Amino acid sequence: MAEPKNWQGMAHFLEHMIFKGTKNILPGVFDQVVEHNGGVTNAATSHDYAHFFLTTASPYLADTLPYLAEILLQAEIAEDEFIRERDVVLEEIRSCYDDPDWLGFQTLCESLYQHHPYGKSILGDESRLRQYSPHQMRCFHRTHYQPQNMTVVIVGNVQQDKALSLVETEFKDFNVPSECPPTGWKAEPPLQEVRRNKMYLQRLEQGRLLMGWVGPGIDKLEDGLGLDLISVILGAGRTSRLVRELREEKHLVWHIESSFSLQKDSSLFTIGAWLDVPYLEKVEDLICDRLVQLQVELISEAELNRAKRLLCHDYIFSTETPGQLAGLYGYYETIASAELSLSYPLIIEKLSPQDLQRIACEYLSPERYAITVMQPC
């Protein structure tokens, strides 16, 4: 979200360039050091943050963390490496355009978020990436890779005082802050209508339908987790409402699911289906009707408890490894506070049928949503 309005894809491109080293760490040396110590490393970029991780045995933390700190804080962004890596990113963009699911999802996001950066692809687009320069990227790096924007999480068999000392020693040599152009983004106004997009793709064999609603941001976490519960009730597993009715009983779809994605400014609730083209309109109408049902009829305690068990078990499974815990704590600390990561099961358990009815009424309107329909040519 920190990208200037005409710099889309810069954060993701910079994620690639971080691994190209510094004046002291040549390209490939960081990976060599980590792998020599039996570790692995990788990174990812979302709309809200860039995530770099390093997994290694605790005795080798002091041997590897300094390298991660230096490439993050002192990225060289050399011109020759910039040009080479740009081709890699461009190929990544091209490969996405071969994926119907990515195309449909991106079209849905652009329809839902017409003013906010959540509507733009994290990868950027080919024409803009060809115009970017190493100088622009250095400016972006020096503006945003600063201590007030960074969270360092260490999880594992490491003493706290030693971990803190290592972080304080290695994460201190930040660049002099620079300035990028202002972002120029606007807050997204509430959706007031149904926004439709239709796509015809040669490589499709079935129709696809993807519907989306904008949910609350992290500042209304309880409402967001209520939508998470509703997504399970509607479309997670054979006994969920939409799967049972539309796939198992009426055979109107080949596959259907709902999902919820928590984001800093506003979350995303989606329902997607694979189905034969003649059923597209009927399935959309049935989905809307089932949303109305959520608003006028209370969910049973048995159905709610099933959804709660599923989400709480998923939460437990997502905290089994040090890497998972580090990602969880880092995510919440970056967009809000790490303490919120511990509140997830507590909030889930206290939500009532009345809470979910209110949340469905507030966020899942059958008259205000975006929909992308994909059909074979």
Results as ranks from 00 to 15, higher is better:
L204N: 01
L204Q: 04
P182I: 11
P177G: 12
T143N: 04
T169R: 07
Q160K: 11
N197R: 13
L123Y: 08
V155W: 00
P189C: 02
G124N: 04
P134L: 14
N149Y: 01
G207N: 06
Q159T: 05
H141M: 08
C139L: 14
M137F: 12
L164Q: 03
Q160F: 06
P177K: 14
N175G: 14
L166C: 11
F174M: 04
N175Q: 13
R203P: 06
F174V: 02
L166Q: 11
I154L: 00
T169S: 14
P181E: 02
P181Q: 04
E170L: 03
L210W: 05
N149H: 04
F140C: 10
E188L: 06
R203M: 06
E170Q: 06
C180G: 14
M137Y: 10
Q206G: 05
Y200N: 07
E188W: 03
Y118W: 12
M199Q: 09
L164V: 09
R130K: 15
L204E: 03
N157G: 01
G156M: 01
Q131W: 10
S165G: 14
Y132R: 15
H144S: 03
V194N: 07
P189K: 01
L225S: 12
H144N: 08
D219H: 14
N197L: 06
K172W: 02
R196N: 12
N149W: 00
E205R: 10
S133Y: 11
K120M: 14
I122Y: 00
E126I: 14
R142Q: 15
C139E: 12
T143E: 07
L209M: 05
V176E: 15
S165V: 01
F140I: 10
Q206E: 09
P177S: 15
F171H: 03
G226N: 11
Y118G: 10
G184D: 05
K220L: 14
Q159H: 07
E126R: 13
R142H: 09
Y200S: 10
S121G: 05
G119W: 01
S133L: 14
G119A: 02
V214F: 03
V176I: 15
T151Y: 00
R138W: 04
D219E: 14
K120A: 09
Y200H: 13
E193W: 15
R203Y: 06
R196L: 13
G215C: 13
G212K: 00
